[in-house]
Amino acid sequence: MDDGKCTFVTDEWGGFFRPLPENRHFFGKDLTFPIEGTNSDIRHRLARFKRKSKVTSRSLDMIERSLLLFHFFQDYPQNLEPLIHSFLSFFS
């Protein structure tokens, strides 16, 4: 948005309606479904968000870099092609 304010997309749980500004609050399961799908993909692929007992990172920098790397390959699969042979060489 041009005014620097964010918008809020939530499901229709009643607790969201009181604190969120009405003019910037969009709600509905149809709006949150794609967001939850992306969150699920991130949790599935990045183990540090899946289990607290193992594979965790306390460094915010490492979490941010992991998310950037995830999106680098998730959003642009062509970025993976030049690296495939290097990755597969581990198994030969």
Rank of each mutant, 00 (worst) to 15 (best):
D3I: 04
G4S: 08
K5W: 06
T7C: 12
V9L: 09
T10W: 07
T10R: 13
E12P: 13
E12Y: 07
W13V: 11
W13I: 06
G15C: 13
N23F: 00
F27R: 13
G28S: 07
K29W: 07
L31G: 06
F33H: 03
P34H: 03
E36T: 00
T38V: 04
D41F: 12
D41M: 15
R43C: 06
R43S: 05
L46H: 03
A47E: 07
R48A: 03
R48Y: 11
R48F: 10
F49S: 02
R51S: 03
R51T: 15
K52W: 02
K52Q: 07
K52R: 12
S53E: 08
S53N: 13
K54F: 10
T56G: 03
S57V: 12
R58F: 04
D61Q: 10
M62D: 02
M62A: 02
E64K: 14
E64H: 12
E64I: 02
S66V: 00
L69K: 05
F70A: 00
F70V: 11
F70C: 01
Q74F: 14
P77D: 01
N79P: 06
E81L: 12
P82M: 05
L83G: 06
L83H: 11
I84A: 08
I84P: 11
H85E: 14
S86L: 13
S86R: 06
L88I: 08
S89T: 15
F90S: 05
F91M: 09
